[in-house]
Every structure is written in structure tokens, then in C-alpha cells.
Write a protein that binds this DNA or RNA. Structure first.
Lengths: 141, 141
DNA sequence: TCAAAGAAGTTGAGGTTGTCAACTATCTAT
DNA sequence: ATAGATAGTTGACAACCTCAACTTCTTTGA
């Protein structure tokens, strides 16, 4: 692991450790995408589509240009996982909605991705809880 | 025996929170890459090159095909950030070595990426330390 | 010893991702 | 009503990524 330990701030070292942990799961995520025959950005898109949303919002969440979303959604739509629907209020907007099959795939996907990596699963449960509580506190504020 | 963590286990929730935290930093990472005029996979490659290594090892760390590494390294080399050098023991192997400029860029890059996100930096220092210690424990075992 | 098997890296084909500029259609605010 | 903004698409172009096929070199084992 190429942890760059910042001796001056515990938050910086914690962040580096989180990056290492996340990086160690890259291969697993790629394998999950392949398992569902989805390209990684397609998997990322489906992951964000718990609720219907305009294409522009998906672009925002993926931090990419909206013209890029057009192509990703094209491919998901041609596989029957997503539909483009007219928005009630604004005829410019296209709402993205998962099909039944899309919902099914998303459910499986999220389940597989939520499995914690061995480094976390191997922690004593008290430590798991402490970690969870700290992260809850960080992300709620 | 290994307990498969379900979605209610503390480790699973901690992992989900970590994924959220990491996902929230996607835009910042992309911005850093752009700042250095590096494509994201190029940035990822340089990040891993703290020490000289064969191309195959970089492929392993990036969890991608070695033919992909050829192209990424080509572009880094044409920018003068990396060199391909013959390996002493095995003439098939090409060792990747950062140039002086490559080292400089890598240093800046790692420094920028190590800045903790606001959610962590805003935690009380005692919590930062607790988080760091928990993560150290998880990643060392 | 030496032929077969295997590993490191490159090439080329083909599809996906990503950005940018330009465009259409629609909405909003004066 | 018109000017300006916004949502989404298109086309051009570069980078990414995998696969199969190939070269070069190393290792294996009969």
C-alpha cells in the first residue's frame, strides 16, 4: 500500500487509508460490472438511479458532461434497463426511469457492491460499530 | 468461519458510508487530474509509481490488461514523466521509472489528493484520531 | 540438450468513455 | 414579443479498455 501518511493531521492520514481501502476494491468492482455485462460508467449510472431523475441531474452526480450521459443512457436504454420519459412540467427535460429489469439489475448490483471488503469484515464488531458511528457523524454534519 | 455481513452489519454500513464519502470526492479528483493535464488513468498510474516496477506490476495494480498499460505509459513517456528501462535479470521486462519531472509531478499530485475532504476535516480532532486508528487496524491486519 | 510451454510487452481491431463546440427546442423574464 | 438561459443531442476527436495474435525471451522437463 502506498499510504502517504500526513503526520500533521489525523484526518489526512485517515483519508489516505480510506483511499487505499477503496483502491484495493477496484478489481472487485470491475469484476461485478463485468458480471452484469455493464461498462463501469453504466454501472455507476444505474447505481445513482434509485429514483427517477432528469439527465442533467445524472450528469451532475457523475460529474461529467451531459453529452456523455446521452451515450451512456442510449446504451442502457437499448438494453431495456432504462427509459426516457417526458417530464410533466418542462418539455425540455427527459426523466430517466428504470424499467422492471433495470430495477432488478440495480438491486443485485447494489447488493453486491455493498458487501464490505475483508479488511472491514475482519474487524471486531465493536470496532466496526465505532467506525460506522464516526463515519455517520462525519457525513451527517 | 467467515460471517457474510448482511446489510445490517456495522461493517456493511461503514463501507456504504465510505463509498459515499469517496464518491463525493469524484469531482475534486477529476479537477486535480485536469489541473495537471493528466487523464484520470494517467494520474492513477503515476500515483502507483512510488518505486520502479515492471509494466506487468502496474497492470496488476490498475487491475487492467497489460496492453492498456502500453498506451498509458506511451503517453506519460512522450511527456517526459516516465522512462522505460531494461530490467537487469530479465530482458523481457521493462522497468518503469519516473523522471525527475515525473517525481515532481507525482509529489504535487499525491499532496493534493491527500487533502482530506471537508467532512473529515470538520470532525473533532479526537474523532479524526479514532477514525485513523480504526483504519490503521483494519488495513494492517 | 533442446523443444515445448509460459511470461512480458506490443500491435491492431472494435467498442466505450469523455470533452468541446454547435445546434434545436423549450422555458423565463423583462 | 424578444432576448437570454437551460435541457438535451450531435459530430469530431482523443483517450481508454479488452481481446486476439504476435515477438522476444525465459523456464521447464523429457
Amino acid at each position: 500500500m502506498t499510504t502517504v501518511a500526513n503526520k500533521h493531521s489525523p484526518a489526512a492520514e485517515a483519508w489516505s487509508l480510506i483511499a487505499d481501502l477503496f483502491g484495493s476494491q477496484r478489481g472487485r468492482f470491475l469484476a461485478i460490472a463485468q458480471e452484469f455485462e455493464l461498462a463501469p460508467p453504466q454501472m455507476g449510472a444505474i447505481k445513482h438511479m434509485a429514483e427517477p431523475m432528469p439527465m442533467s441531474e445524472l450528469a451532475g452526480r457523475l460529474a461529467c458532461d451531459s453529452s456523455n450521459v446521452t451515450g451512456i443512457v442510449d446504451r442502457l436504454e437499448s438494453r431495456g434497463l432504462v427509459e426516457r420519459r417526458p417530464a410533466p412540467n418542462d418539455r425540455r427535460v427527459k426523466m430517466l426511469v428504470l424499467t422492471a429489469e433495470g430495477e432488478r439489475v440495480r438491486g443485485e448490483l447494489v447488493k453486491r457492491m455493498s458487501e464490505p471488503p475483508p479488511q472491514l469484515a475482519a474487524l471486531p464488531v465493536a470496532d466496526q460499530r465505532a467506525l460506522r458511528d464516526l463515519l455517520r457523524r462525519a457525513l451527517s454534519g
